[in-house]
C-alpha cells in the first residue's frame, strides 16, 4: 500500500475528480445520500458525495485507506455523533426520512440501521446475553419465550446456532474470531434492522472464517439492505451487487460491481482495480 501523499502523484493533473462517473442512483433506494460533506474540525474528510443504497442489495465501498469510506459509512447511522469534532453536512435519507433531522432520534435510527465493526467486539457477557442485548434495551420482547425465540432465530440467521446451541451461557469472548464476528452479526440482526453497515467485517479473520462471513452476507441480502466497507477487491467482487470507489474523500465512480471490476470508466478506478496503487 502506498501512502496518500505518494498516491497523489499518481493522479495526473488532467484527471477530473469533480464529478462522480457511473450510476449513483438506484431504482429502489433504501437510503439515499446527497451532497454529503464531513469535517473533522477544519479538515474535510468527505467531499460532496452522493449515492444510493439499493434495497436488498449489497453495496461495497472500496478505495485506498484513508479515502473516507469508513467515515462515510459511519454517517449512515450517525455513529460519527460520538466524535465531538466531527461535523456532517448534506442530505441523508432513510426511506425518505432525513436521518440528520433535529427531531430524529439517533437511538431509533441505530435500531433501524445496525452496524458490524472491523474487529469482532462481543460484550463480556454470555452468548445468549450478547444477542439478547439489543432486544432487551429496545424492549422488543415482552417475555422470556419471545426473547429466546429472537436469540435463536438471530443465531440461526447468522449461521452460528448449530455451533453454540449447547453453550449459550458461555462467554461470547471465548469464541473464535470468525464465530465472534458472526455473533456480532447475530447481535445486530436481533434488533431486526432494515440496513446493516459493515466496516471491514472480515479484515481481522482468517480466510476460512472470511469465506463463511461472505456467504452469510450474501444470504442476509434477502432480508436486509447492506453496505460494506472493504479493502479487499476480491471480497467486494464476491459479495456486492453495486460498488462505489472512493478516493481522497470523493466518490470517484459507482456502478454495477461486474462493470466496475471488468470495465471501469474512470482512470483512477482502473488504476486501483489493476493494483497500480492502494
Amino acid at each position: 500500500m502506498i501512502d496518500l501523499s505518494s498516491s497523489e502523484s499518481l493522479v495526473s493533473d488532467d484527471i477530473d475528480l469533480s464529478k462522480t462517473v457511473g450510476e449513483i442512483y438506484a431504482d429502489d433506494a433504501k437510503m439515499s445520500m446527497r451532497n454529503v460533506n464531513v469535517f473533522y474540525d477544519e479538515k474535510q474528510a468527505i467531499d460532496n458525495v452522493s449515492l444510493d443504497l439499493a434495497r436488498n442489495q449489497v453495496t461495497a465501498l472500496i478505495g485506498p485507506s484513508g479515502c473516507g469510506k469508513s467515515t462515510f459509512l459511519r454517517c449512515l447511522n450517525r455513529m460519527n455523533d460520538t466524535i465531538p469534532i466531527c461535523r456532517v453536512e448534506g442530505d441523508l435519507r432513510l426511506e425518505d426520512e432525513d436521518i440528520y433531522a433535529k427531531k430524529l432520534d439517533p437511538v431509533l435510527l441505530r435500531a433501524r440501521v445496525g452496524m458490524v465493526f472491523q474487529k469482532p467486539n462481543p460484550f463480556p457477557k454470555s452468548i445468549y446475553d450478547n444477542v439478547a442485548y439489543g432486544p432487551k434495551i429496545h424492549g422488543l420482547a415482552t417475555n422470556k419465550a419471545e426473547l429466546d425465540e429472537i436469540v435463536v432465530s438471530s443465531l440461526q440467521r447468522a449461521g452460528l446456532f448449530n455451533e453454540v446451541k449447547d453453550r449459550l451461557d458461555a462467554p461470547g469472548t471465548g469464541l473464535s474470531g470468525g464465530q465472534q464476528q458472526r455473533l456480532c452479526i447475530a447481535r445486530t440482526i436481533a434488533v431486526s434492522p432494515e440496513v446493516i453497515l459493515m466496516d471491514e467485517p472480515a479484515s481481522a479473520l482468517d480466510p476460512i472464517a472470511t469465506a463463511v462471513i461472505e456467504e452469510l452476507i450474501d444470504e442476509l441480502r434477502e432480508k436486509y439492505t447492506i453496505a460494506i466497507v472493504t479493502h479487499s477487491m476480491q471480497q467486494a467482487a464476491r459479495v456486492s451487487q453495486t460498488t462505489a470507489y472512493f478516493h481522497m474523500g470523493k466518490l470517484v465512480e459507482m456502478g454495477k460491481t461486474e462493470q466496475i471490476f471488468t470495465n471501469p470508466v474512470h482512470e483512477l478506478t482502473e488504476n486501483y482495480i489493476t493494483g497500480r496503487f492502494g
Binding site: V107, L109, A111, F117, N121
Partner: peptide, 21 residues
C-alpha cells in the same frame, strides 16, 4: 476497549445504557 462502547451505541443503546450494561 472503545470497540465495546461503539458496539453498544451502534445498536441504538443510549449512552447511559451502554455505561450501565
Amino acid at each position: 476497549p472503545k470497540a465495546l462502547k461503539e458496539g453498544s451505541l451502534g445498536m441504538g443503546a443510549t449512552l447511559s445504557e451502554t455505561i450501565k450494561l
